[in-house]
Design a protein around this nucleic acid. Sequence first.
DNA 1: TAGATTGTTAATCGATTAACAATC
DNA 2: TAGATTGTTAATCGATTAACAATC
Lengths: 205, 205
Amino acid sequence: MNVKKIPDIIIGRLPVYLRALQRMADNGAKTTSSQELGEHVGISAAQIRKDISQFGEFGKQGTGYSIQFLIDKLREILKVDRVWDVVLIGAGDLGHALANYNGFQNRGFRVVAIFDNDKNKVGQKIGEFTVEDTDTMLERIKSMGVKIAMTTVPASAAQEVADKLVQAGVRAILNYAPVSLNVPENVKVQYTDPSTNLQRMTYYL
Amino acid sequence: MNVKKIPDIIIGRLPVYLRALQRMADNGAKTTSSQELGEHVGISAAQIRKDISQFGEFGKQGTGYSIQFLIDKLREILKVDRVWDVVLIGAGDLGHALANYNGFQNRGFRVVAIFDNDKNKVGQKIGEFTVEDTDTMLERIKSMGVKIAMTTVPASAAQEVADKLVQAGVRAILNYAPVSLNVPENVKVQYTDPSTNLQRMTYYL
DNA sequence: TAGATTGTTAATCGATTAACAATC
DNA sequence: TAGATTGTTAATCGATTAACAATC
């Protein structure tokens, strides 16, 4: 009864709200309204109130939402009120960028290992990490108990890597390769590929 | 009459179809069905037929769709039957990755210039490019007539950069910074930020 | 108290799915 | 001809918006 199923589309908007709220907090703001938050993220005030109210009554009539309180609640809902270990597969340019990315801090994530199948890259240092061989990936991920992976491998290798990740117990994959992945129902995949994103805009030009 | 407005959500799926079709073509396939394509991209056959039929009758009863014909049509619809010049703002790790990305080839895009405001980076070589100063960005983009930009600048600089891009005539921005941008109605923005993408999955873990 | 803004309900709008005649 | 699969219509399902009582 408690667990009415929340639509994916609402879950997908929460990180955007969270990001905007954290920005407001950084700027020293203490409270906000659905109206103001909506202007920041380009979503109607009604929708923001509806989305948030799925999870509880977090606002106050007349005054709106306490920014810090709402941040805490959203982090809890999204389960980013902790730090998730993430593995990175593919030590190319994009792999380097993600390994060095400092935007994971305070957002709930940290990279813990990087793998590549290129023997020339294995052993190489990337920041504080040493690139590991994909041959050892399955066991390493299992033993670390990592549930989240980011893949920056070529399209031709992506499905094979995904299969291995799933086998190792990974349940969420952020896939930078330009292919749709075939995974079991209980594994989530997010796709992000520059060409596809650009192609979503050219129609309107 | 001719121009019934096509929903954004349909336009957003077309690049995914296109990507899958190009992959099938690479594998030597000649025809496909809404059923088969749907299995590849995780979308129902009915929806694929409905989406495609918005633009014409591209299939044949009994045999399905000619892959090459459908590719050509989708490229035309999405306006990627040409090569778009794209500028890149921000010459950090991610900027490097995008500058060297070879997935733009045959997808309708090519990077033509890279800008950064860090005087230490200006003049530096990235592949075949020389990093240019953002001070000269506005004039350069205007004179080149570039309509598409990718931004990999820090969140704090993103809005300012976006304003300049819009002023220079850019109409589509692929924004890697973790902030929502404020732009005029006739400018399209696509967001892609690793933390936000990861946060869309942790809820389900 | 007066003004502001929430949470929620009902109304609207839009997207997805099911089904099937048409036809290759 | 028999089988397959499209394009499209109608039915269903889900998401968004408008409106407002409740209340800070």
